Amino acid sequence: MTTRRLLLVILGGMLGTAGRLGIGLLVPDAGAFPVATLAVNLLGALLIGVLAARLPGASDLRVFLGTGMLGGFTTYSAFAVGAVGLWTDAPLIATAYVLLTLGLGIIAALVGVRIGRTRRSAE
């Protein structure tokens, strides 16, 4: 990895993480259910799908947007901690959270790829 690419990931990660924090401040959780984390992970999966379809390979823009910005925006660790925290008090809600995140995340990524391919073929 070149220094330029490392800096692109760092800058993108800072912007993505700030975006995630902003959404976390704007979107209140529903009780113990981590709504903001679910929202950023689903939006991130959709955008990563679009990006994968539009920018295949490892261009500087994809490194900045995908690895950096969207990597900082989405959060597996908060998802995992949220699921474990829910499990203690509400195992059924925790199971629903995990299934929603994974299932809808895959669907969001597929939709993103489809959107990205559709736009690409229209150009």
Results as ranks from 00 to 15, higher is better:
Thr88Trp: 05
Leu43Thr: 13
Ser59Trp: 00
Ala36Glu: 02
Phe33Lys: 11
Val113Met: 11
Pro56Asp: 11
Thr17Ala: 15
Leu99Phe: 01
Ala39Gly: 06
Leu99Cys: 01
Gly57Arg: 08
Thr2Trp: 08
Tyr76Gly: 06
Ser59Asp: 10
Ala108Asn: 09
Ile48Phe: 04
Leu38Pro: 00
Arg62Ile: 05
Gly16Asn: 01
Ala122Asn: 03
Leu61Gly: 03
Ala96Glu: 04
Arg20Ala: 09
Leu46Lys: 07
Gly71Leu: 04
Val40Ser: 07
Ala45Lys: 11
Gly68Arg: 02
Ile107Gln: 12
Leu26Gly: 11
Leu38Lys: 01
Leu8Asp: 09
Ala18Pro: 02
Ile93Glu: 11
Phe79Leu: 13
Ile93Ser: 11
Thr3Ser: 14
Phe73Gln: 05
Pro34Glu: 03
Leu61Phe: 14
Asp29His: 03
Arg54Gln: 11
Ala18Trp: 03
Ala36Cys: 01
Thr37Gly: 02
Leu100Asp: 01
Thr67Phe: 00
Val40Arg: 02
Leu43Arg: 07
Ala52Cys: 06
Leu46Met: 14
Leu65Pro: 03
Leu110Ile: 13
Gly105Arg: 02
Arg120Pro: 07
Arg4Ala: 08
Ile106Ser: 11
Pro56Cys: 11
Gly68His: 05
Leu15Lys: 05
Met1Leu: 09
Thr75Gln: 10
Val40Thr: 06
Ile23Pro: 01
Ala39Pro: 03
Arg5Gln: 12
Val113Thr: 10
Leu92Glu: 12
Leu15His: 04
Leu99Trp: 00
Gly16Val: 08
Ala122Thr: 07
Leu46Arg: 07
Met14His: 10
Ser77Asn: 08
Arg62Cys: 01
Thr37Pro: 06
Ala78Lys: 02
Gly71Met: 04
Met1Val: 06
Ile93Pro: 00
Leu7Glu: 13
Leu70Glu: 04
Thr101Trp: 01
Val63His: 09
Ala39Tyr: 06
Asp60Met: 01
Ala78Ser: 15
Leu15Glu: 15
Met14Trp: 13
Leu110Gly: 15
Ala52Ile: 12
Ala78Tyr: 13
Ala109Arg: 04
Ala32Trp: 09
Leu46Pro: 03
Val111Lys: 11
Ala96Asp: 01
Ala53Asn: 05
Arg117Ile: 14
Ala78Val: 07
Thr95Glu: 00
Leu102Thr: 07
Ala94Met: 00
Thr88Gln: 15
Glu123Leu: 15
Leu26Pro: 03
Arg4Cys: 08
Gly13Thr: 13
Leu15Gly: 04
Gly103Glu: 09
Val40Met: 09
Ala58Asn: 15
Ala94Asp: 03
Gly12Cys: 04
Ala96Gln: 05
Gly24Met: 13
Leu65Val: 12
Gly66Lys: 00
Val113Ile: 14
Ala45Cys: 15
Tyr97Asn: 00
Gly85His: 08
Ile106Gly: 09
Leu61Thr: 09
Gly57Thr: 07
Leu92Val: 09
Ser121Asp: 09
Leu47Gln: 12
Ala78Met: 13
Arg114Met: 10
Ala96Met: 09
Leu42Arg: 02
